[in-house]
Design a protein around this nucleic acid. Structure first.
Lengths: 230, 230
DNA sequence: ATTTGGTTCTTGATATATCAGATTTCAGAT
DNA sequence: ATCTGAAATCTGATATATCAAGAACCAAAT
């Protein structure tokens, strides 16, 4: 009884409830800089603007608060806390977590994961030749995902994903430069080698430096001169 | 017009709102193992038991969800997800973050922080001699706090505090053994030395190993044989 | 015995009303 | 002009009612 008519996927909006939808919306606004540090988020006003009640909005704000992007003072208001400094620290957090994941991957990796990683690197080499930026972004994701899989660390993976502050646009901007693409590929290759050698210290070190250079480059582009040196 | 009558501190309960109060309550229940993995948290029932409405409870659950201790499925229920494996990964996360903080501390530390750290180590030495366990626990906190201050990383600090799964009782249990107290002191001293030498790599390495051994010991005691080897 | 389809019940999602703390405003006293 | 404090206002906190999706159950059909 297999129906031959392919069903079109449902509207992504429907996949989430209001809370998740709003959470993603506000998070993106904060990360992208549209909502700046110190800006006030009035529960009633925001809920009205979004055409929803305050209940799901409050829950979304609690999530953002738990993520450290917003601070709420009782009966005073919610304020955006994300700024250039925090963006830098989020890069440090990403570096710390991702490098720990790489360490675990080097410890636990199996043949199937090695295959998937080397296969992804081959695809990257191809995409690099024709400078297919969108494909490179997707492959980058695939590469890091494969390492996450190899590490067997679900919780760390989740924690690390909370530190993401990239969006597709700024990503494209960075990879538009040839030397950035080449550096990225070189680093990915080196990380793979370290993991494949089961060298935990080396894998951790290379992953940390990879995340740090990429993260610093990103912060520079988004926050510009606001970014304090560290 | 300074009033001489010392005011007694207000009931800690009053310092928090219901949401924060409930959040801490449920978190502690989960971390301590009183609420086990897979257990269902019925919003209405729990709210009634606590004598509150569902609104603040829902917000508390959203926070716990953001922390990865609970998973909520729409119109199906909220479930505890914290288990032995996650406890192990939280130790890894603590190790990753705390060692990154130690690295930053080694990079940025100033004289005043060095003084505070060496002073704390002296106090630890004294408390170690008389085996004052409660004092040792407090000093441990003070030592790590001082490193956090020295690092200048507020966001990392916050993130790291979310990985805490200790409570005073199990802490006492561990420190009840003399060799654990001595090992702890030895490691703290070594960490201080590395930071004072501004050796980032060494500080990171020593802090990671310190957190890992302490964390593994803790997980062993709380989860016992459930803890899978890694 | 298995399947189908509807009814009922449970439960989180959402909307709305009310409560109470914090800020602001402004008249009245000094 | 400045200070005081009470009233008006704003705002998050909390309580309650309602909605709708999913699960459980049961009876009728096969």
């Amino acid at each position: 009884m297999n129906e031959q008519v392919p069903l079109s996927p449902v509207d992504p909006w429907m996949l989430k409830n209001l809370r998740e939808h709003v959470h993603g919306l506000v998070r993106k606004a904060i990360i992208s800089g549209r909502l700046k540090a110190g800006e006030k988020l009035n529960e009633r006003r925001l809920a009205t603007e979004l055409g929803i009640s305050t209940t799901p909005l409050k829950e979304a704000l609690r999530q953002l608060e738990a993520e450290g992007l917003v601070r709420t003072e009782a009966r005073r208001g919610s304020y955006v806390t994300f700024n250039a400094r925090q963006a830098e620290e989020m890069t440090l957090a990403r570096a710390a977590l991702e490098s720990m994941i790489a360490r675990q991957a080097a410890k636990h990796i199996e043949k199937s994961h090695v295959l998937r990683l080397s296969e992804t690197l081959e695809q990257m080499k191809s995409a690099l030749l024709v400078a297919d930026l969108n494909e490179l972004i997707a492959l980058n994701e695939k590469f890091h995902d494969a390492i996450h899989e190899a590490s067997g660390c679900q919780y760390l993976r989740r924690l690390q994903s909370n530190q993401r502050m990239y969006n597709h646009e700024t990503r494209l901007l960075v990879l538009a430069e040839a030397h950035e693409r080449e550096r990225s590929f070189r680093e990915h290759t080196a990380i793979f080698e370290a993991i494949n050698l089961r060298d935990q210290d080396l894998a951790e070190k290379r992953m940390r430096e990879h995340v740090m250079t990429a993260g610093e480059e990103h912060v520079r582009r988004v926050f510009g001169s606001q970014a304090l040196g560290d």
